[in-house]
């Protein structure tokens, strides 16, 4: 059965693959983390996003449009990002995948160099925006230390703050998310680096009902960086039941096959 899925950005905020959850005295409510995991699983989805970057002086750049195709399960997540417009990004691709316990592999290639993709840093912003590949995978939901930090409110919706910390020191030290318990949806996500600096804040600004009517999904998101600049991401199209063909991730599979 084809499951109804949340588009990319919801997945980005909710992703998680962990099977066991170590908790301390401030335990997260039972079932919440599992619900968050379930919400991001998908047999196939496609979202089209318009990303507008606003710099610290409030100057807006022309929007960059991208399409993201994804598949996510407990065992594996993989995404294909395709640049739509402007000309500079058109038919530039990024393919990325992560197995349950493995690292994130990401490769980029242009319209004419499918045979020569280059490996890219998953912590870098995509097409010079604040849209970061690492966020797509929501790796923090897989971290062993998850604590509930009390109730909060984001854009008028009640949510529960959850602090996620990795077992070992990583490039990202901590992620704090405010999760809407009813829809297992992170409304706000703060990402802190190893120096404990806030790197970016991802906020869901607008929600819409899924076509399946099975819940809510993000329609508009902002990603603000530590300098006061931010990116507005508008989900303007997509398909909750995208049919992933064998060739959809063909390049990725060939690259991963080679690297193995």
């Amino acid at each position: 059965m084809n499951r109804q899925v949340a588009p990319l950005l919801v997945i980005a905020l909710l992703a998680g693959c962990g099977q066991s959850w170590a908790t301390d005295s401030r335990e997260t409510p039972p079932g919440l983390l599992e619900a968050v995991q379930q919400a991001r699983y998908s047999d196939g989805f496609e979202v089209r996003l318009a990303i507008t970057t606003v710099d610290a002086q409030k100057v807006r750049s022309p929007p960059i449009k991208i399409a993201v195709i994804g598949q996510a399960s407990a065992e594996r997540q993989r995404f294909l990002v395709r640049g739509i417009s402007p000309e500079a990004v058109r038919n530039h691709y990024l393919v990325t995948a992560k197995n349950a316990a493995g690292p994130i592999n990401a490769f980029e290639y242009g319209p004419d160099d499918e045979g020569h993709p280059i490996s890219v840093d998953p912590f870098a912003g995509l097409f010079k925006t604040d849209f970061v590949i690492w966020d797509l995978f929501g790796t923090w939901w897989d971290w062993p230390r998850q604590t509930a930090e009390g109730l909060g409110e984001v854009n008028g919706r009640r949510c529960l703050w959850v602090r996620s910390r990795p077992a070992a020191l990583l490039q990202i030290k901590e992620v704090v998310s405010c999760v809407d318990k009813e829809f297992a949806l992170a409304l706000s996500t703060k990402v802190y680096d190893s120096q404990n600096r806030l790197r970016r804040t991802i906020r869901v600004e607008k929600l819409i009902r899924k076509n399946s009517n099975a819940g809510l999904m993000a329609k508009k998101i902002t990603i603000a960086d530590e300098r006061g600049a931010y990116s507005e991401i508008d989900v303007y199209g997509g398909d909750e039941q995208y049919q992933v063909e064998s060739e959809t991730f063909g390049v990725l599979e060939r690259l991963l096959g080679k690297s193995n």
């Binding site: 819409i208 009902r209 076509n211 398909d239």
Partner: peptide, 14 residues
């Protein structure tokens, strides 16, 4: 159309 579709554009299907 799909029975669950209530959005401005009904959800696509094959």
């Amino acid at each position: 159309t799909r029975t669950g579709s209530q959005n401005a554009m009904p959800s696509p299907f094959v």
